[in-house]
Design a protein around this nucleic acid. Structure first.
Lengths: 124, 124
DNA sequence: TAACAATATAATCAATTGCTTATATAAATA
DNA sequence: TATTTATATAAGCAATTGATTATATTGTTA
C-alpha cells in the first residue's frame, strides 16, 4: 500500500473537519427556526407532550409533530411514551455548543407557567 | 391612562421574550448554513477578503458576497476596505452564544494554511 | 483616461422549508 | 368492540433559500 504523503494527510484531515462543520451546521439549522428554538427552550423547564406544544405554539398538531421529528432525527431530543401521550425531552448534555446556546436563550418559564394556569391539557 | 394588570404585564413580558427568541433564531439561521458557518470559522484565524473566500469555498464571487451581506446585516461581521480589497472580520464579542458556537467549532486553520501555501490571491 | 481587478447588485431558478388539511395509527375507555 | 383522544404520516402549496449568470460600481494602474 502506498504511504500517504504529509500533504495527503493534511488534506484528509481538512476534509473530515469540513464534514464536522457540515454536521454542526445541520444541527444549528434546527435551532435557526423560531418554532423549534422555542420548543427547545421550553423543554429546559420540563418535558412536554405534543398537545402542550400545540397549545403553547398555537399551531397545528401535525406541524408540531414534524418539528419534533426533525429534532429527534438529529438527536437533540428524546421521546418517551406515557400511555397515550408522547413526551419530548432535551438531549443536549453531550452537545456543548447547543447547550451553550440554550443557556443563553431568553427565559420562557413564565410563558409556560401562564399557559399552565389557563387550564392546559390534562396529560396524566 | 389605564393601569396595566399584573396579567397584562406578564403577557407583555412573555411577548418581548418571544421577540428575543425570534431575534436569536434569525442569527442562528445564519450559522445553520455550511458555507456561512465555514466563513465564520475561517475568520477566527484572521480577517479574509472576498476573493480569498471565493478560492477557499470554491464558489462564485457573487455567492460569497451575498452570504457576507447577510452576515453583515445581522451584525455578525464587520467589513473594512483596504484599497481594492474588502476584508471581513468577526464581530461576535458581544454575542456570547455565537461566540460559544464558534469556540466549539472544528479547527479550520490547517485548511486555511494549506490554501495559503498553494498561492492564494495577492491581497496587498 | 482606458483597461483591469475586486466587489456589489440584479435577475433568475431549482431545491428546500414550514406550514396546512386529510388520513392513518395507537392507546384508553365507555 | 366502537368511540374518543393523542400522535404520526402523507400530500400539497406558497414562501424562502442558496446558488448561478449578467451587469454595475469602485478603486488601481498602465
Amino acid at each position: 500500500m502506498m504511504k500517504k504523503s504529509e500533504e495527503d494527510v493534511q488534506l484528509l484531515e481538512g476534509m473530515s473537519s469540513l464534514d464536522n462543520v457540515i454536521e454542526m451546521a445541520e444541527k444549528l439549522k434546527l435551532l435557526g427556526d423560531k418554532t423549534r428554538l422555542t420548543m427547545l427552550i421550553l423543554m429546559k423547564s420540563r418535558d412536554l407532550c405534543v398537545c402542550e406544544f400545540v397549545e403553547i405554539l398555537n399551531m397545528s398538531q401535525p406541524g408540531v409533530s414534524q418539528h419534533l421529528r426533525k429534532l429527534k432525527s438529529l438527536g437533540l431530543v428524546n421521546e418517551t411514551r406515557k400511555s397515550q401521550w408522547v413526551y419530548y425531552s432535551l438531549n443536549v448534555e453531550d452537545k456543548p455548543y447547543i447547550k451553550a446556546v440554550l443557556d443563553h436563550a431568553p427565559d420562557l418559564s413564565t410563558l409556560l407557567k401562564t399557559m399552565e394556569e389557563r387550564g392546559r391539557p390534562v396529560c396524566d
